[in-house]
Write a protein that binds this DNA or RNA. Sequence first.
DNA 1: ACGCCATGTCAAGTTTTCTATACCTCCCCC
DNA 2: GGGGGAGGTATAGAAAACTTGACATGGCGT
Lengths: 74, 74
Amino acid sequence: MGKPTKVVNRIRALRFAHGEMTQAELARLVGVTRQTIIAVEQGRYSPSLEMAFQIARVFKVPLDDVFQYSDAEG
Amino acid sequence: MGKPTKVVNRIRALRFAHGEMTQAELARLVGVTRQTIIAVEQGRYSPSLEMAFQIARVFKVPLDDVFQYSDAEG
DNA sequence: ACGCCATGTCAAGTTTTCTATACCTCCCCC
DNA sequence: GGGGGAGGTATAGAAAACTTGACATGGCGT
């Protein structure tokens, strides 16, 4: 299942916009494992608020720039 | 423990700024239980990203207006 | 004094998020 | 034609978030 999540994200785009940053590198900078990044990037589940803030911080953008709430779904 | 959380919030202030909205009413609008609102408002744990977006939506403000990430904290 | 409402606490339980291993495919390079 | 790096899958289990229900306190109105 995983319930496709109401929150969408631009992590993949932001990674490539930041020097082709790999999932492993992002995971290291955020302080989580690689599969957590994969799962969040794919929208299999939405991250904790703390992790969301840390991802935004890595990319030096506001949180709303990484994650958007989509009402239409589920 | 509960780990005092690196994320702080202005939920209480926003509730009072919105017609003295009660915790129970906010919980109803967000779609969670009253205890969850209490715990998040007190910073006992940080909410999921979805819940954070829903709270911001109730108050009609951006997410960054409700929650702030504070690096300094143990 | 009494009831009621808002806030808060505790404890036990479920669901979701996250970790740790392991393994798999595809592409590129030597 | 083998090795390595990047993305992805699967499983089991820990940790955090969230629920349900019961109970305690203080303020307010009657």
